[in-house]
């Protein structure tokens, strides 16, 4: 059966079909809004936070444990610090963690996946078995082991997460490359004399970059959640660095009376992760790709 005819020629006047699908997906727009809003607030934290000077080693016990008020929209913690201020700066730690983990894990995974998928044979066998081994390890347990063996710090946690994270990308890219490399356009490029580097990075990579972007967006929330979980267990950021996971852990000691000390940071994590997930779904529609 012939397909429904695609309109041609109207491309210049109309909008991008991906953007149309994205625009029709209201949750995705909300996700984009949330991520942009939180990202902007995080960037501008030193200027928009009400008490930026309370970030360092600061205590003011006379103002401790105050419920939300106009002066402190999210109340104050046991050291008398403004919770809203600390949430805004806590987001900085979350974003830093996410950028480092994905910044190391994604390029590493993509490179190994490209190599395994394209070269096949022994390269593929060794790289993919290695990936399987890493995937078989429960992530939290590994990070717990690594961080407790080394000194628990934000840096150690980030490295441990990055060391696990590349496997997902290696596997995703490996699968994509294996199907794309059979396409005629790869063969045609090779017959035109293209180098292996050219084929990997100019012919194949542009065809899978959108899938990787969607995966990154969906992953971002998960990395932040894991980072917060580690801090909650005392294995991530160390005080006095403001961190949402640490704040939830500390605040939890004072539940339910001083609820604002744990609930607001917890809610802050939730909103950011929700934003990333909704945005990821929207991007999936935009690029019209399949991601596991």
């Amino acid at each position: 059966m012939t397909a429904v005819p695609t309109p041609r020629g109207a491309r210049r006047t109309g909008e991008h079909p991906g953007w149309y699908r994205f625009r029709k997906n209201r949750p995705a727009l909300i996700g984009l809004g949330l991520v942009l809003l939180i990202g902007l607030a995080t960037l501008l934290a030193p200027w928009i936070a009400p008490y930026p000077h309370q970030i360092g080693p600061f205590v003011n016990f006379s103002a401790a444990n105050q419920p939300p008020s106009w002066a402190h929209l999210m109340g104050t913690d046991t050291a008398g610090r403004d919770v809203l201020t600390r949430v805004l700066f806590g987001y900085r730690t979350s974003f830093l963690l996410m950028l480092v983990v994905l910044g190391i894990g994604v390029p590493l995974g993509v490179l190994l996946g490209l190599a395994a998928g394209y070269f096949g044979g022994w390269t593929e066998a060794i790289l993919m078995r290695l990936t399987d081994v890493f995937l078989a390890l429960p992530p939290l347990a590994v990070v717990l082991a690594v961080t407790s063996a080394l000194a628990p710090s934000l840096g150690t946690a980030m490295l441990a997460l990055a060391a696990l994270w590349w496997t997902w990308y290696a596997r995703l890219v490996h699968g994509l490359v294996r199907s794309i490399k059979k396409e005629d356009f790869i063969l045609a490029a090779r017959r035109s004399g293209a180098s292996t580097g050219h084929i990997l990075f100019r012919e194949i990579l542009p065809n899978i970059i959108s899938t990787i972007a969607v995966k990154i967006t969906l992953d971002a929330g998960f990395v932040i959640l894991l980072g917060a979980g580690l801090s909650f267990l005392g294995l991530g950021a160390r005080p006095p660095t403001p961190d949402l996971g640490t704040m939830v852990a500390d605040g939890a000691n004072y539940l339910p009376e001083m609820w604002w000390e744990a609930i607001f940071p917890g809610f802050a994590i939730l909103v950011l992760i929700l934003g990333f997930n909704l945005l990821g779904d929207g991007l999936r529609d935009y690029f019209d790709v399949e991601v596991l």
């Binding site: 429904v4 005819p5 309109p7 109207a10 491309r11 006047t13 109309g14 909008e15 079909p17 699908r21």
Partner: peptide
């Protein structure tokens, strides 16, 4: 007819 991103197409 189909309603699409670029308007209505009468196919």
């Amino acid at each position: 007819e189909f309603r699409g991103p670029r308007g209505i197409s009468r196919v």
